[in-house]
Simulated assay, not measured.
Amino acid sequence: MQQMNADTIKCPNSEHANDVKLICFNESCKANRLYCIQCMKDGTHISHPQNQQELPMLFEFIEKTEKECNDWMTSLNQQMDLAQQSFYFLLEGIRSKYQKTKEQFLNLNSKQMNSFFVEIIQFKSVQQTIKDQIENSIKELQNQMEKLTYGLKLSELNYCSISDSNIQKSEELYKKGYQLYWNDDNYKEAIKMFDQALIFNSTHQLSLQCKAQSLKMLGQYNEAIIWIDKALQVDPKHCNSLYCKAESLRMLGQFNEAIIWADKALEIDPKHCSSLFCKGTILTQLRMFNEAMLVIEQSLSINPNNFDSLWSKGLCLQQQNQFKDAITFYEKALTIIPNHQWTKNRRDECLKALNNKSLFKFLKIY
């Protein structure tokens, strides 16, 4: 890969020994955009001198375009997220309207029972109609994406090939960054290493994902989402990346959208403990305690020592004023990470609540 540096960029004209000094911004120009002094002497670009700039302008233009492209892709992702959120609400509405247990049905009054029965009698016809509409809409969207890909000639790109040496260098830098991220908890330095890895291979998925994870650990959730979206462009089915987006959205308070992304991870790997923890915690925050407990228990059945799921179960119990049981799970979590201050604080809150409860009972007796 040729270095983007005025001292090393050679003129595209193989007969010229000079380095590139100038660039052409004329949209309709057919000549080489990067050219040397000899090209200029030969009369190249002479018809539109107003569009010529010195080489440093190229790097400014590339940087500006990269930012604009990131903003544009973020906007497109947001539009797709809105569609996914609408789809999630549709699924929740269908579940609420057509699914009831025997116990739930018996808790309805006679008028509600009749209405529910009328709806489920019509379920088959409604199911087919919605199925056809969704399939047609998805097919139309896929056709539009294919047309855009063809129109932009994205399948014909030939300047993104990466040399073996750059791939190897990128992997070496990623491993150094991962050491800083995973073993040393040095997220800022890890990000610097991941950035260096991405200079040599901009599509190194693990560097993109670990940079996003590091940003998340630093509390920079919006920035984390930007980088995790880049990782998902490389591998849309990477569970840890999907979880990272779900968890970042959870921390931003965007609970419904976070559940969508946690569910995407769980579609790929139903036993992905981190995504189960994330979904369970969101349900707790939404005060859907029964549903939350089912999801958290599922995670703990897979890995009884999953730290996040242990404190999440403690939180779910604490939110229901089951302080004694909550303390049990906070203590279990602290046997894994003894110095986790958040968990210590929640445990102490439960202990204080129990002490206050005992004191109240004592005062009530006397």
Rank of each mutant, 00 (worst) to 15 (best):
A265V: 03
A265F: 03
A265G: 14
L266H: 03
L266V: 05
L266A: 07
L266S: 10
L266C: 10
E267P: 03
E267Y: 13
E267R: 15
I268K: 15
I268D: 08
I268H: 11
I268S: 06
I268N: 05
D269L: 04
D269R: 11
P270E: 01
P270R: 01
P270S: 05
P270Y: 01
K271T: 14
K271W: 03
K271Y: 13
K271G: 12
H272E: 11
H272C: 08
H272W: 10
C273F: 00
S274Y: 05
S274P: 07
S275I: 03
S275L: 02
S275W: 08
L276G: 05
L276Q: 03
L276K: 06
L276S: 09
F277E: 10
C278S: 14
C278Q: 07
C278L: 03
C278V: 05
C278D: 06
K279D: 03
K279P: 02
G280D: 06
G280W: 04
G280T: 12
T281A: 13
T281F: 14
T281N: 15
I282N: 10
I282H: 10
I282P: 11
L283V: 00
L283N: 09
L283I: 05
L283F: 08
L283R: 13
T284C: 15
T284H: 11
T284V: 13
Q285V: 00
Q285H: 13
Q285K: 15
Q285W: 11
L286D: 00
L286E: 06
L286G: 04
R287M: 07
R287W: 00
M288R: 15
F289G: 08
N290S: 14
E291V: 05
E291D: 15
A292H: 08
A292T: 05
M293L: 12
M293N: 09
L294V: 13
L294I: 13
L294Y: 08
V295P: 08
V295H: 02
I296Q: 10
E297K: 14
E297S: 13
E297H: 12
S299A: 15
S299I: 01
S299M: 07
L300G: 11
S301R: 15
I302E: 12
I302T: 13
I302K: 13
I302N: 10
N303T: 06
N303W: 00
P304L: 10
P304S: 13
P304M: 09
N305T: 11
N305V: 04
N305H: 14
N306K: 04
N306S: 02
F307Y: 14
F307T: 07
F307H: 15
D308Q: 15
D308F: 12
S309L: 06
S309E: 03
S309H: 03
L310T: 03
L310W: 08
L310Q: 02
L310G: 01
L310P: 00
L310S: 02
L310D: 02
W311V: 01
W311F: 15
W311D: 01
S312I: 00
S312Y: 00
S312E: 06
K313A: 06
G314Y: 10
G314E: 09
G314W: 04
L315M: 07
L315E: 10
L315V: 10
L315N: 14
